[in-house]
Amino acid sequence: METVMSYFMLNPAFYIFAGLAVILAIFMITMPNPVYSAIFLVLTFFCISVIYITLEAEFIAAIQVLVYTGAIMVLFLFVIMLLNLGRDADLVEHSGPMKYISIIVAFAILIQIGLAAKVTVNIGEKGMFPIEKIREIGNTEAIAGLLFSDYLYPFEIASILLLLGMIGAIIISKKRSE
């Protein structure tokens, strides 16, 4: 019989990289220099993709690295480097008491999420895609099969939205240059 604890008996690599991801994320928000922040965000994404691999979701892991780490973050770094924001000392934000209040609020939200997670972890019947089935048919095939059958319309709508975003960006940049 499965217990709640068996949910937490994962690959030790999961805990190592999950911890690392949290630490790197903290580094990311505390670094004064935006280039460093971007670098730590890249490393955080990398850790998250390793977490996906430990959870046997190789497809998502590859896409995570390919899209976020390999493409989006390169653009981020690109923009930050082009802007050349100046010395670190000029970039430190002086927000006063707000800083401490926000830390308290953040912890409160964290506790809330923790409590919510504790309540909702329940083990009922397995869904259509338990891990055994995914192992059998393969990760990519499982996602592709769902994406192009049951979720075809949401998938198409998402791609139209992305296309709109792209066209919008082109129009905005065109206007400025004229």
Binding site: I39, V42, S49, E58, F59, A61, A62, I63, V65, L66, T69, G70, A71, V74, L77, F78, M81, G138, N139, T140
Partner: peptide, 21 residues
């Protein structure tokens, strides 16, 4: 791995960081 080529594309896209950094 069952993601084969995707893995190759993903990892080789990291090469740009060395040059950028």
């Amino acid at each position: 791995t069952n993601i084969g080529i995707l893995y190759v594309l993903a990892v080789s896209s990291l090469g740009v960081y060395a040059i950028t950094f």
